[in-house]
Design a protein around this nucleic acid. Sequence first.
DNA 1: GGTGGACTTTGCTTTAGCGCAAGCTGCCGC
DNA 2: GCGGCAGCTTGCGCTAAAGCAAAGTCCACC
Lengths: 232, 232
Amino acid sequence: MASLDRSIVANAPIFTGLSPDELDAILRDARSVRYPKDSAVFDQGTEAHSFFVLLHGHLRVEKTTPQGQQIVVRYVSAGELFGVAQALALKHYPATAIAVVDSVALAWPSTLWPELIAKFPALAVGALQTVGSRLQDSQARILEMSSEQVEQRVAHALLRLAKQAGRKVEHGVEIDFPISRQDVAEMTGTTLHTVSRILSAWEQLGLVEGGRQRIVLRDPHKLFGIAEGHGK
Amino acid sequence: MASLDRSIVANAPIFTGLSPDELDAILRDARSVRYPKDSAVFDQGTEAHSFFVLLHGHLRVEKTTPQGQQIVVRYVSAGELFGVAQALALKHYPATAIAVVDSVALAWPSTLWPELIAKFPALAVGALQTVGSRLQDSQARILEMSSEQVEQRVAHALLRLAKQAGRKVEHGVEIDFPISRQDVAEMTGTTLHTVSRILSAWEQLGLVEGGRQRIVLRDPHKLFGIAEGHGK
DNA sequence: GGTGGACTTTGCTTTAGCGCAAGCTGCCGC
DNA sequence: GCGGCAGCTTGCGCTAAAGCAAAGTCCACC
């Protein structure tokens, strides 16, 4: 088990560029925490006490407006760094992270971040790349929301989910955690109703297969066509 | 002039946490470049040869889809770091930066980034915070696009522009560089036509004052009300 | 001082997708 | 085994805003 965790950690992009010894030193300060399904790892607006690397499971990161409107910022998979508010000079978490399946994460106290950075500059470089790739994702999403129809956006979202957390099953690729129509709506800037309609239509065409909090892509290639604006 | 530049650089957030000596060492490797109005500092997709700090002027950063749809990612003001593709592990610039007024920037070869980081870890920390705050902005924008009406989004955009690059004038705050209705549309994910209509309506109400590539906010407070969804 | 093009305004038509409402279904807990 | 409810589907009307079209207006350059 410990060695399994080790391999996940060693392959985490954030830790590339560190020697095994350095990695050990860093891991000594971490504690491992279990988060049961549907529990929060941290809540938007609370003090950013820790930063994390996910060892096992999946998290949904969501952000809520003062008016109560909510969006899904992203899903976190094993090996990813998250909750680095401190590194971005934020005192409070800018979003809420919820375990969508039973999950395990390594946690470090935020106060340790400056020390760790000072000792291991490669960490800062890794963090920069992590945050940078999230920035890319966000901007891609803005571009999508400005230029694409809802149907295309939903197709894109499903393809991205499948890529990040897809599991091969008999007739396609299943998204490997429970995800509701509402969640997809909050990822694509639309409503539960519209997502439901779109998925129903696709199910007719044999492109996807649905169910309660369950989505299987049966024809990713054709979905890609829709995402790119052909198909339809 | 040199000392004027010095003070801009010294106050740039990216350089906080560096001693004057360190700053000098870093500046020795930079060259200063003039970009006349409407010229490109770099183009989306080209090799990321340099990274920059803007000394004077304003840039518009825009991103284009393969299909030709375009959005304005952000505007860059004096003192800001930009073009750090290399730090995010990108080989090519992910967007195009255009001078909207005659501008001057300091430029470093991208190849120098790893050395500088190694010598001055504070730089990595600064860059992380810069990129982090851009990530915050992008996510805020996604939230806005998912939950707000066009009118609110335009109000938000104008207020942000005024905050970042506002100049006090006789009856209000003027945005300190030429900006077209089209540009505002590309910032808010709408069309030229809709922006024009909204600004015309606001002009009727005395909230703004328009003109060719010119916007003056006459009643920021009331605009804020609209942005928050009251007013209407 | 005139002319062309870039920028803007404005009216009309169309439509994607939202909001509302009602009903269905499969799962979980008792 | 049976409620009950969370999640899903579906129909209908409505509206914000996009698309289309046509005319102004201002500026820069000749």
